Each structure stands twice: as structure tokens, then as C-alpha cells.
Amino acid sequence: MTQIPTDDPTIQLDQFLKIMNLVATGGQAKMVIQGGFVEVNGETETRRKRKLRHGDLVSFEGTTLQVEFDE
């Protein structure tokens, strides 16, 4: 599991997808999110600015990752 270094206890969904290398660009992140291909905590999420918090589960193309922040 990769931890995200940040001072903010949230991260936007599109940024998370890029940081975790699930997509190559912000444009690709926008397309897959708005296209309904990404789930957050088991539910389809179409808002790319959705704030993720510690413990959230993000699923895309058969990969599920849990959001974790460095302390």
C-alpha cells in the first residue's frame, strides 16, 4: 500500500487516481470518473473533485486501493 504525504487530511479523487498511477493524466482521470468507471466505497462516483478521506476505498479497472495518509 502506498501512503500519500500530505498536510491536508483529504485528497481529491482525480488527484488520487493520478498519484496512484491508475491514470496517466488529469484529462484521463476526468474522463473515467465522469464516465462512471470509478467507485468510492462501493458506489459509482462521477464527481472528480470528490474529497477522499483516510480509509476510503477507491476501485477502478479491477483494482481497489484504500486511502491512507502519512501521519
Rank of each mutant, 00 (worst) to 15 (best):
E68V: 14
P9T: 07
F60E: 07
E68G: 13
Q3W: 12
R53E: 14
T25Q: 05
L52Y: 08
Q34L: 08
R48D: 09
T10P: 04
T44K: 14
F37C: 11
V58Y: 00
F60K: 00
R47I: 01
I4Y: 13
G27P: 03
P9A: 11
H54N: 15
E68R: 15
T63R: 14
D8M: 10
R47K: 14
G42T: 04
E39F: 11
V58H: 00
L57K: 13
V23T: 07
T64A: 09
I33K: 01
Q12H: 11
L17E: 08
G42H: 06
L22Y: 00
R48M: 11
G62A: 05
Q34T: 13
G62T: 08
Q66P: 12
Q3H: 13
Q12Y: 03
G27D: 01
E71I: 14
T25D: 05
Q12W: 00
I19W: 06
Q28S: 09
V38E: 05
G55C: 11
V58R: 00
F37T: 03
L13Q: 01
Q15T: 11
T10D: 02
T6W: 06
G36H: 01
E45F: 05
T64D: 10
Q34I: 04
Q66N: 08
D56I: 06
N21W: 04
P5L: 13
G55L: 07
T63C: 07
T25G: 04
Q66K: 15
Q28F: 05
M1E: 13
R50D: 01
K18E: 07
E39P: 06
Q15P: 02
Q15A: 13
Q15F: 03
V40Q: 02
G35L: 04
Q34A: 07
L17N: 03
F16H: 02
I4V: 14
V40C: 08
N41H: 07
V32A: 07
I11Q: 04
D70V: 15
H54S: 15
D56L: 06
K30N: 06
